[in-house]
Simulated scan of single mutants.
Amino acid sequence: MPGCFKQTVFAFIAALSFASFILILVAMGTQKWMMAKILCKTGAELVNATDPELVKFMGELYYGLFGGGKMRQCGLGGRHSRFTIFPHLVKKLNTSLHVVIILFLCVAFSFALVSLGFCILNILKVPYRAIKGPGGIALWNVLAGSFAVLAVSSFMAAVELHNLTERIANFREHVFQFVILEEQYQHCFWLCVASATIHGVNLLLVAVSLIHFPTLKTKPEEANVTAEDIMY
């Protein structure tokens, strides 16, 4: 059974692993990964709108992994609409990349739970000889953090390289064409970044748990032997 110091460190790692699991679940369930300002290019060109008039053709768009919403303005006031990624919109996107992002996040929070379980087992007892102690905990945190980083990187690639926001903005738009004026990552995206950072912190804590602090030993008192003790 590990000492009191290691138990404390493992308990802290377990709490962080559970926090990482919750962060990923919240990020996947909330549709606030990206916010963008969109311009109805077709409407602005039809009326030859100048800079002060372009405000009437600017709308907003937000989306996540499974859906989002859009407020479109084409000169006649704003119109709000909601959409879902599955099953129709995903066909207009890079389907394989979008599915891979979701799979990476699922694997990441699964390994976060495994890390939590092994921390608890290491607090109580050593679970398995092959992956016992800090080495096993470090392994699961490396895997969980790596898949979270892969998910975040894949989402950024979809946005920057595959024009994800523009494709979503022009979904089911047969008359008007929308262009992206501004994009900004929202809190759900940063929750996944925080989850990956947590596993990096866990690796540092695992390294701390390997530190062996010197134990203070009391010096035994020397016995005073007298002549009377020898006689008796």
Score class of each variant (00 low, 15 high):
Cys40Ser: 06
Met34Ile: 15
Glu60Gln: 14
Ile168Leu: 06
Asn170Tyr: 12
Ala227Glu: 11
Phe213Trp: 02
Phe176Thr: 05
Lys219Pro: 00
Met231Asp: 04
Ala19Ser: 13
Phe176Leu: 09
Leu124Thr: 13
Lys217Gly: 00
Tyr232Ile: 09
Val47His: 12
Leu139Phe: 07
Lys37Arg: 09
Asn224Cys: 08
Val114Cys: 05
His80Trp: 14
Arg82Thr: 11
Ala49Gly: 13
Phe118Cys: 07
Val225Glu: 02
Phe83Gly: 06
Ala138Asn: 02
Gly43Asp: 01
Leu46Ser: 13
Val152Phe: 10
Lys125Thr: 12
Asn141Glu: 01
Leu204Met: 11
Gly69Tyr: 11
Ala196Ile: 09
Ser115Ala: 12
Val149Cys: 15
Trp190Asn: 02
Phe21Glu: 10
Ile85Gly: 06
Thr197Pro: 03
Ile230Asn: 01
Ser115Leu: 10
Val208Thr: 09
Arg82Gln: 07
Phe111Met: 15
Phe104Arg: 11
Leu143Phe: 14
Ser96Ala: 15
Gly145Asn: 09
Met71Glu: 14
Thr215Asn: 04
Gly77Ile: 08
Ile13Tyr: 00
Cys192Trp: 08
Leu105Asn: 03
His187Pro: 00
Phe86His: 06
Phe18Ser: 13
His199Met: 10
Leu205Ile: 07
Ser17Trp: 04
Leu121Asn: 03
Phe171Asp: 13
Val193His: 02
Arg129Pro: 01
Met156Glu: 05
Pro87Arg: 02
Leu54Val: 04
Thr165Trp: 05
Lys41Pro: 00
Leu204Asn: 03
Leu164Pro: 04
Leu161Pro: 00
Leu65Met: 15
Phe178Pro: 00
Gly43Ser: 11
Ile180Glu: 01
Phe21Leu: 15
Gln73Asn: 06
Glu160Thr: 04
Ala49Leu: 08
Gly29His: 09
Leu124Asn: 10
Leu191His: 15
Gly68Trp: 04
His199Asp: 08
His187Leu: 10
His98Arg: 10
Glu183Thr: 11
Ala138Gly: 05
Gln31Ser: 12
Ala112His: 13
Ala112Cys: 14
Cys74Asp: 11
Thr197Ile: 10
Pro134Leu: 08
Pro52Ala: 11
Leu89Cys: 13
His88Asp: 14
Leu124Pro: 00
Trp33His: 09
Leu203Ser: 06
Leu54Ser: 11
Phe18Arg: 11
Cys192Gly: 04
Glu173Met: 11
Ser209Asp: 09
Val152Asp: 12
Leu181Cys: 02
Ser81Met: 14
Lys132Asp: 13
Val142Arg: 08
Leu203Arg: 01
Pro214Thr: 00
His212Tyr: 00
Ile101Lys: 02
Met231Arg: 15
Val114Met: 08
Val90Asp: 05
Leu124His: 07
Asn48Gly: 09
Met58Thr: 12
Ser96Tyr: 04
Val114Ser: 05
Leu39Thr: 07
Lys70Met: 14
Leu181Asn: 10
Thr218Phe: 02
Gln7Asn: 13
Val90Asn: 15
Tyr63Phe: 15
